[in-house]
Write a protein that binds this DNA or RNA. Structure first.
Lengths: 218, 218
DNA sequence: TTGTTAAGCGGAGGCTGCCTCCGTATCTTC
DNA sequence: GAAGATACGGAGGCAGCCTCCGCTTAACAA
């Protein structure tokens, strides 16, 4: 078989992916979304496979680990969330923009029961697979945070990662009756804390600030 | 059998608990502490039983659920933590006292790998069993918080429960390389946010404050 | 079309952990 | 020492995880 230069349709001489494989992947994803949103992140993978109408083996071939499946299911949602940040970049008040973004995050979490676990995955432990979500969210947060810092309204020693973790932490209590209002309240406090303090504090706090959050190598 | 008033040794006419039962309970607790601290809260209960040198049935009789065991294991630690709060009540600067308490909490979590799960249990979901830990911690937090509020240094619309949840949330990312410094930084920001803002904000934020955290009925 | 072959399918089966149940052993009490 | 209450332990049933491999099917070439 001769490779024809310039033939850029599918640049590599690889077989087209099988139609059934593509279809099944989609079926699994759809089923997983339903099952995870209903039963939480602990839900049985066999249940997902059954709902999708595929064998358990098929599920595992497409998504070798539970986390893979998770990431795939919530990728779209994460993307949505970061797009909202994009929009907010044009808001007048940068602090308010950040605040609003965080608040919208709470709402997001509220509607998707599995979302917290997805965020956990994105924010937590430096495994490989969650890279996408983590990057997206970090960038989204960063763009809002940076603006506020540049405007001189916020302290500069909190990294986007830090903020993300704080956000996540505050949403983590998401299976209590009134968790939403709690989370919103806590986030407000946090954002207030992020503001550059208008006057010197009465007592200089010597709790030494950590050096500006070392960016994770990546 | 005649009940003798004033005989206050064991006030009720019940059998003395069996010696082996008492011993086994202790063995299980000790084993659980080791296993949980090493393997995290997911660790196998059968492993605990094996380590304790008792049958799995014995373990379950003493601690019908995993949570029961958890609570028992970390009860002492929780107590210690709240005692520290007690000491701090005499500190001069109430804001600083609170800050220090939270920070010490981070250290605590750092040394006990299972501690976060224990806190989660205490802070999360209103099941029955965690009442003790939750109460202890709420009171500890409350006493410090109240003092700061009374001194006019902190806003009054955050309940001890809220604060506890925030603390927990920030510790939740406890399996990352640098999580400790992150958590400390985040807590500092949060405490700053809690302070009564010295001057009116440049732009009145209309994000309406939730009504002063309704105390959970209990 | 048809044949070839890589890719994908599915579920049996091995494994681990959860939890219950009950015959047996041990301790307390008298 | 005997009786009776209490606790012990682990077999066994169940569920979920994940792997492995014989069978099926879609893509491609001719």
């Amino acid at each position: 078989m001769i490779y024809i230069a310039g033939m850029d349709d599918h640049t590599d001489r690889t077989r087209k992916p099988r139609a059934d494989a593509v279809r099944n992947r989609e079926l699994v994803l759809e089923a997983a979304k339903v099952v995870f949103n209903a039963g939480g992140p602990e839900a049985s993978l066999e249940a997902v496979a059954k709902r999708a109408g595929v064998g358990i083996g098929t599920l595992y071939r497409h998504f070798p680990t539970r986390e893979d499946l998770f990431e795939a299911v919530y990728r779209r949602e994460v993307e949505q969330l970061s797009e909202f940040a994009e929009q907010l970049k044009n808001a007048k008040d940068p602090v308010d923009a950040l605040r609003r973004w965080l608040r919208s995050g709470v709402e997001f979490v509220a509607t998707k029961k599995g979302m917290v676990a997805a965020l956990a995955l994105a924010v937590q432990s430096g495994s490989e697979l969650h890279a996408f979500s983590f990057d997206r969210l970090t960038k989204a947060t960063g763009s809002l945070l940076d603006r506020a810092v540049a405007a001189g309204e916020m302290r500069a020693d909190i990294s986007p990662e830090d903020l993300l973790r704080a956000f996540f932490g505050m949403c983590y209590i998401h299976d209590q009756p009134g968790w939403q209002s709690t989370a919103l309240r806590l986030l407000d406090v946090f954002v207030d804390g992020l503001r550059v303090q208008p006057v010197a504090k009465p007592k200089a706090h010597t709790t030494k600030r950590a050096k500006p959050a070392a960016k994770p190598k990546r």
